[in-house]
Simulated scan of single mutants.
Amino acid sequence: MMNTTHAAMGVALATPLAFAAPELAPTAALAGFAGGAFPDLDLLGGQHRRTLHFPVYYSVAAIPAGVLAALFPTAATVAAAFFLLSAGLHCVADAAGGGLELRPWEATDDRGVYVHPKGAWVPPRRWIRYDGAPEDLLLAGVLSLPGLLVFDGAVRALTVVGLLVSVVYVAVRKRLPEVETRYLR
């Protein structure tokens, strides 16, 4: 899935707080956005879906963080809980997408996401065939609805930017391997 889809997923997770604790909802949404985007920073230098992708560790850490946020709802505790929850969901959701190959629509790679405690890769399910597939854009659009309709300010602005980036990325996705092999390698 696209990074923007994961970020929108993080904002969507925070939507119930807009009604239950509106004073904390923007913080939760921004932390969810950041947590959704964070694991993909491993594209910049590490092994993608292994270096900063911790499906078990983020998810386990989200439990006490969530309990702490429920007992002591401050901006810091809520931000930590939603960041970890969103990062964990990002990593788990990556297994629903394609593999790590340069042309993931060819479905030649069996690496979905690395599970550190097992020391093994979970194979991709390809429910979203590859990052930047049309169904990925559809999912990003649906998951962006709370950011557009429930939130305002920075959350809405980031959601709009995320959607615009998604549309451009989907439009050029299948050309990127050629650009990478020609100019970046």
Rank of each mutant, 00 (worst) to 15 (best):
A93D: 05
G46A: 03
G45C: 02
A87H: 07
A96I: 01
H90G: 07
D131P: 02
A120R: 12
W127I: 15
G98V: 12
L43R: 12
Y57N: 03
L137F: 14
W121N: 11
F83A: 09
G98M: 12
A133L: 10
L41H: 02
A79D: 07
L43V: 15
G46E: 12
G66T: 10
A107V: 05
R103F: 05
D42H: 02
A70W: 14
Q47G: 07
D110N: 14
H48S: 08
V78K: 05
A75P: 06
Q47I: 15
H53R: 09
L52R: 01
S86G: 05
G66S: 03
G99D: 01
F82E: 08
G119I: 00
L138Y: 02
G119F: 04
H90N: 11
A37R: 02
D136M: 03
Q47S: 14
P123M: 06
R126I: 06
A95D: 03
R125M: 14
G99W: 02
T51L: 04
V60K: 00
R49P: 01
L139V: 15
G88W: 10
D131Q: 12
G132W: 10
H48V: 10
H48N: 11
V115M: 10
Y114G: 09
S86C: 02
L138N: 07
T51N: 01
W127P: 04
A62K: 06
A79V: 01
K118T: 11
P117V: 01
Y57I: 11
H53I: 08
A75R: 13
D40P: 11
V56G: 01
D110Q: 13
H48I: 08
Y57M: 06
E135H: 11
L85E: 04
R103Q: 13
D109Q: 07
L71M: 13
D131N: 15
V60Y: 08
L89I: 14
D109R: 12
A95H: 09
L137H: 00
A95M: 02
T74H: 03
R125E: 05
C91T: 05
G132E: 06
L89F: 14
F83L: 13
